[in-house]
Write a protein that binds this DNA or RNA. Structure first.
Lengths: 222, 222
DNA sequence: AGTTATCAGCTTGTCTGAGGAGTTGGTTTC
DNA sequence: GAAACCAACTCCTCAGACAAGCTGATAACT
């Protein structure tokens, strides 16, 4: 038997499988730690770590003295997994939807503090575009885009963007590796243009420029 | 001192706080178990359980022999919870972003099967708008909107819409209760117009009509 | 009888000590 | 200079002990 995962993770997977199969109903108590340990043939502390992992994923909940209870039948959302599996073009289209609308809203709602964030992140991005490593540049680029989202003052859009970021980051770094000329680093003007439109309170222009920029990004990877 | 949380959970919160504060950069290694245990004044197994919990939340990753590493700066939020807590206007703006872009994509990608789905769901919606209970009408309305999303042929957008649906459904039913005249039920024409624009392969018009319709919905609840 | 107190026996929570297994970086050797 | 080696470090797993908390049954009381 090959053990590519630690025992605790394997135990967590096994428990998740059993929970998903309906072996224990919602809200029901699992067997005690010692019982489970004997069933799976591992130590008690290993079971405890498995339970703790599933507790972190909001599937189980343990109450001292009472037991361990099922609070969800499957790991909720798993957006990380969805995004990992999804085509990068699908992800970028999702990003485009979010960010274009955010740019539009930002143009109506931006505060002086938001504009300050634009100035800072744009300056960072300019510096990073010149001679920094790829990952620095990517971080600086994402920081500006996040500033745009923040200026929309919409918690849902912000959270959506943050969910997308890890996947986008990886895709961007991969893309840079294949692009020795660093062509994309020269689109500083496009970013400034988006910031300007938001500053000038022009929703349609901000949305259009955002759409244009992100469409270009999408085209470059497909 | 009252300890309503187990030590392991408190330790996990403390670690999450420090990670969020940037004490350890992304990808960086945390101090060893024994060091952390001494720092927080708890036992080693407690630290291990805290780390395991954050591993379940995809914030940390431990590699045997190497150490524990930061893989995300913040816990990926439970989307159900985020949406429950969020203002309904924020949610509707998110929906607007997703659905407007989906309408645009659908106009280029719709298949004959998609158009068929439009016809069926629109007919259902018309019937339900006349004399059905509120929840039937809401389901019929959402079914049409989901058909639009489906026609965009983008897995991420579809998944996003499905994540939003429960929250939207509840908000719509609440809204209907307060609206005895059923004014909203008369906007069948707006829905037909969206479907027509997609059928006629007019992305901008489809997006504009979708935006207009959803803006009206947003305005009616705020 | 009905209510309250108490308690035994479960449960999870925490700590410690001991090895096992894997990684890493420096040293030695060729 | 490159490959083999190794020691020190890391996490992984187990076992045992005791603390802390819950639950249901029994006993005591009103």
């Amino acid at each position: 038997m090959i053990r590519r995962h630690p025992l605790a993770e394997q135990a967590a997977e096994e428990l998740l499988r059993r929970i998903g199969s309906g072996e224990w109903a919602l809200g029901q108590k699992l067997p005690g730690e010692t019982t489970l340990a004997a069933q799976l043939g591992v130590g008690r502390s290993t079971i405890r770590e498995a339970v703790r992992e599933l507790a972190g994923r909001r599937v189980l909940e343990s109450r001292q003295g009472a037991g361990v209870f099922v609070i969800a039948h499957q790991a909720s959302e798993d957006w990380d997994k969805v995004l990992r599996r999804a085509d990068i073009t699908d992800v970028l289209e999702g990003r485009l939807a979010i960010e274009t609308e955010a740019a539009r809203l930002a143009a109506s709602r931006r505060t002086p503090a938001d504009l300050k964030a634009f100035r800072y992140t744009l300056a960072d991005r300019k510096r990073a575009s010149e001679n920094s490593p790829d990952d620095w540049y990517v971080e600086a680029d994402l920081a500006f885009h996040r500033a745009v989202i923040t200026a929309a003052h919409n918690a849902v859009l912000t959270e959506l963007f943050d969910t997308f970021v890890p996947r986008i980051r990886r895709a961007m770094i991969d893309m840079l590796r294949l692009d020795e000329q660093h062509r994309h680093r020269h689109d500083q003007a496009a970013h400034v243009a988006i910031a300007d439109a938001i500053r000038d309170r022009d929703p349609d222009l901000a949305a259009a420029r955002s759409r244009e920029h992100l469409s270009a990004v999408r085209s470059s990877v497909s």
